[in-house]
Amino acid sequence: MTAELATPRLLPRRLGLNRPKLEVHEGDLARADLILSHATHCDPQSNAALLGDKRLLFSASGRSFLSYAPKGRTWLAFGAPVGQAEEAISLAKRFVAMAQKRGAKPAFYGVGPSFEPIAAALDLQKVKTGERAILDLTTFSLDGKQRQVIRTHRNRHIKNQFSVRIEGPGAVRANLSRLQTISDQWLVHQAGGEKGFGLGRFDVHYVDRLPLATVRAEDGHIVAFACLWPTADKSRIGIDLMRYGEDAPNGVMDYLFAELFLWAKAQNYQAFDLNTSPLAGVEPCSSSPFVTNLAKLMYEHGEKLYNFQGVRRFKNKFHPEWEDVYLAAPKGVSHFVALARATLLINRPL
């Protein structure tokens, strides 16, 4: 396995290719990218700001930002503010005040336990919307019975001369045609198509800003790839796009993940974030709030658009710990409406 992950991150050159309409100026994306490269105590999901499909609200100092998207009369921030910890609460308050001044309903989607101080300071009400799979790399090993299947896939791929290469931002340019082909082949089998808002899509300008992991056959032919979401303080590293081509061998993603876990541990990352399983762990019962029952209904009917159960099963095979993820909003804001509009934003490419 080769690793060429550049630190600090490299800002990409313009590729001159078509891209979805941006909600933010290219220069502000570069500012956000620079903040991400130095931020501490931020979630890997903060890298989704680089999609360009959300607006960016910067702090007065310019050292922090918050990404959000309007949908109807709801303004949805994705995650917590990024940058300086001492600016997080004031930036979140500013976002809420700005939305309310314009007659909109503010909410924060995809926030985890680290958001609690902000929720408390703003008196926000939280509703669980899913769970995030976290693998502790400080104790991770491929040894033991529970890692046997993954270990078997890894050993077989190594025996067949496959390898994983991890390169810094900008690696997409050298392999654009092949990566686009793999992405197109993968999307043929995905009923929901490309996503957005909090989930990445194969937009070259976005992917080119991120570290890229590729699985290669003996002759260098790429059969699968994944885009990584690093954090500057190495508290966590996450994964976004994961795609494989029609010629990829069985078990290729197990092999890729095994190599990523080992590489990330060697790079001194503390945990690997396998990203969120939407609506996982949201169970209805007679005493559940109205929103919880409706969230479960959305889970059941959204299965065709987003393979919730399959995603959950795939992540479970790595035996992660599951961390609750919430939607937080001020009193008087309908959590269900906010959740429904977040779902529309995620599936906006449809």
Score class of each variant (00 low, 15 high):
residue 2 T to K: 11
residue 7 T to G: 10
residue 13 R to H: 11
residue 15 L to Y: 05
residue 18 N to D: 13
residue 26 E to Y: 01
residue 30 A to W: 06
residue 32 A to L: 04
residue 33 D to F: 14
residue 34 L to D: 10
residue 35 I to M: 02
residue 39 A to Y: 00
residue 48 A to V: 08
residue 49 A to T: 02
residue 50 L to P: 04
residue 57 L to H: 01
residue 64 S to K: 04
residue 66 L to V: 05
residue 72 G to H: 07
residue 78 F to K: 01
residue 98 M to C: 12
residue 100 Q to W: 13
residue 100 Q to S: 15
residue 101 K to N: 10
residue 104 A to P: 03
residue 110 G to W: 00
residue 113 P to A: 11
residue 137 L to V: 06
residue 138 T to L: 10
residue 138 T to E: 10
residue 139 T to W: 08
residue 141 S to G: 13
residue 143 D to S: 11
residue 149 V to N: 15
residue 152 T to F: 15
residue 156 R to Q: 12
residue 179 L to N: 02
residue 187 L to D: 11
residue 193 G to R: 04
residue 195 K to R: 14
residue 201 R to D: 09
residue 202 F to S: 09
residue 203 D to F: 04
residue 207 V to L: 12
residue 213 A to N: 01
residue 219 D to N: 13
residue 226 A to R: 03
residue 233 D to M: 05
residue 233 D to K: 05
residue 239 I to T: 01
residue 246 E to M: 15
residue 247 D to T: 10
residue 253 M to A: 12
residue 268 N to W: 05
residue 268 N to G: 03
residue 272 F to V: 01
residue 285 C to E: 15
residue 286 S to W: 11
residue 293 N to R: 10
residue 296 K to R: 14
residue 297 L to G: 09
residue 301 H to D: 15
residue 302 G to A: 01
residue 306 Y to M: 09
residue 317 K to I: 14
residue 320 P to E: 09
residue 320 P to D: 11
residue 323 E to N: 07
residue 324 D to Y: 03
residue 328 A to C: 04
residue 334 S to Y: 05
residue 336 F to Q: 06
residue 343 T to Q: 06
residue 343 T to Y: 05
